[in-house]
């Protein structure tokens, strides 16, 4: 149990994040869920890269055991991607709030539905 602790945390975050994205209708909450989901992946890469008692990869006789530095580099890139995604998502949410006046998904769908109905009625009147 204790040796799988990091995996349990990873899977919990993964499922919790994905659940929030799917289950919540609020655009901001969806983005929170998405971020949690992405964060779980950081842990998936990083946790196995750490060796107990391992140091940074220094080539010196005093250090024998070192942790793999590559996952850290990869996840640094993934974090940048995650930040960019979150920023873009929030920017879109702001623009949606400006033009729709709401950030609830069901209300946006209802507004769109109303436009489509209005368009169809306009066409019928013309025809």
């Amino acid at each position: 149990m204790i040796e799988h602790f990091s995996y349990i945390v990873t899977v919990f975050l993964m499922i919790a994040g994905l659940y929030i994205v799917i289950a919540r209708g609020n655009l901001i909450k969806k983005l929170v869920g998405l971020s949690i989901f992405q964060t779980s992946v950081y842990l998936l890469y990083l946790a196995p890269g750490k060796l107990l008692g391992g140091t940074a990869p220094i080539l010196a006789p005093a250090y024998g055991v070192y942790s793999n530095p590559l996952p850290h580099v990869l996840i640094l890139t993934a974090i940048v991607v995650g930040v960019a995604t979150l920023a873009l998502g929030l920017a879109l949410a702001v623009r949606i709030r400006e033009v729709y006046g709401t950030i609830e998904e069901d209300e946006i769908l209802a507004l769109d539905h109303r436009i489509e109905e209005a368009e169809e009625q306009g066409e019928e009147r013309r025809a």
């Binding site: 623009r95 729709y100 769109d112």
Partner: peptide
Amino acid sequence: DRRALAAAYRYLIMGTIGATFIVI
């Protein structure tokens, strides 16, 4: 069209889930 914003948001959510699945 303002629906472009909603479409882009939706694509962002589904696209990011897809990309995260790929990275997993």
